[in-house]
């Protein structure tokens, strides 16, 4: 997926979000660190252009909720970064945003983390890429692209804000 394709994909998702969520003022976007955050910001901008209403965005770090912490006797802990949700999520329609949906464990952690902040009316999941191989019963509500992959491959999303380019690539590991 190249830059142009990514841009069109996000615009398409923004339209779907607006269509499926009556009452745009109840919407809020929460990106999962790291690459969910710029995607959420782009979507917020796109939704704003469509609906004429800027949607609040937050950033969620799920490290402290991971289910694989403390499982390794060797090696340092993953780096924790700040969670910034500068609004109340109570009774909001939350759009949880990530770059790649894979096993579903990140989303499980994100749901736990989010619920510690309050009680949203709805949580919907937005992902740029769904590469399959789910290990938990989790399904995205908005998918940019379904990418059939094998477990030996890895999916890398590059974003302008972080990596200096917009691109999705599949690598053999």
């Amino acid at each position: 997926m190249d830059a142009d394709r990514m841009s069109r994909t996000l615009t398409r998702i923004a339209h779907e979000i607006v269509e499926r969520n009556r009452g745009i003022e109840e919407l809020a976007l929460v990106g999962i660190r790291t690459r969910g955050v710029p995607i959420a910001k782009r979507l917020a901008h796109a939704i704003g252009e469509i609906a004429g209403h800027e949607v609040p965005t937050g950033a969620l770090d799920i490290t402290l909720y991971r289910d694989d912490l403390m499982r390794h006797a060797v090696g340092p802990q993953p780096v924790v970064r700040s969670t910034e949700i500068p609004f109340s999520i109570d009774d909001k329609r939350i759009l949880l945003v990530d770059d790649v949906l894979y096993t579903g464990r990140t989303i499980r952690a994100a749901l736990d983390a989010l619920i510690d902040f309050g009680r949203p009316k709805v949580i919907q999941l937005v992902v740029l890429v769904d590469r399959g191989h789910r290990e938990l019963p989790i399904k995205a509500d908005y998918v940019g692209k379904n990418l059939p992959t094998s477990a030996s491959q890895s999916v890398q999303v590059h974003l302008m804000e972080i990596d200096g380019k917009d691109e999705v690539e599949i690598q053999e590991t």
Binding site: D61, L64, Y65, L69, M70, V79, V80, R81, S82, T83, E84, D112, A113, D116, F117, G118
Partner: peptide, 26 residues
């Protein structure tokens, strides 16, 4: 690293539910 991590930890103290499950069972 400790000071940067502290930054993230401080936010937890500002939440309504000031608790994360990180050291569950420890």
């Amino acid at each position: 690293l400790i000071l940067d991590t502290t930054e993230a930890m401080r936010e937890i103290g500002q939440r309504p539910i000031k608790k994360v499950p990180t050291l569950r069972g420890k």
